[in-house]
């Protein structure tokens, strides 16, 4: 692959140059990135569990570690990725069904508003664990 073959990706006139990217394109990029992040997460999840499901001691000590604020903060990042991906996914499915096709931008912002509410709900649920230190030193 030659450098100039990548002009469609990095060139100033490419549709990927930040100022050339329109709302729908940002949605697509975000959907793709979150989708790939979630695939990586699934495999990490299985790896962790496979080392811990053998005995009750292993499992409980893994839960001990993963309930530390840093890990729960990472859970929150996971929540953001899933919610964005799912809300935009619904938008894609709507268009496939022929719903709202003429108002894609509006539908995007409605989906993002719902996503924001759900994400705030998630933050509210995790707030104490992430930010309030526990007696045990977290």
């Amino acid at each position: 692959m030659k450098i100039r073959d990548l002009k469609w990706l990095f060139g100033r006139n490419s549709e990927f140059w930040p100022t050339n990217i329109k709302t729908g394109m940002w949605a697509w990029i975000g959907h793709r990135i979150t989708g790939l992040v979630l695939v990586v997460y699934v495999f990490m999840h299985l790896s962790f569990l496979s080392t811990a499901s053998i005995s009750s001691g292993d499992f409980n000590s893994l839960m001990e570690v993963t309930s530390k604020p840093l890990f729960v903060a990472m859970d929150f990042v996971l929540i953001i990725a899933v919610i964005f991906h799912a809300m935009n996914g619904f938008r894609v499915i709507m268009f496939d069904l022929g719903l709202g096709v003429r108002h894609q931008k509006l539908v995007f912002w409605i989906a993002m508003a719902i996503a924001a509410i759900l994400i705030i709900g998630g933050l509210w649920a995790l707030w104490d664990i992430i930010f309030v230190p526990s007696e045990g030193g977290g």
């Binding site: 495999f43 299985l46 569990l49 496979s50 499901s53 053998i54 005995s55 009750s56």
Partner: peptide
Amino acid sequence: VTLIWGIVILFPFITGG
């Protein structure tokens, strides 16, 4: 392979450890 792996991971819980 991943499906089989995942199925096996839960065996200890299902059989009660």
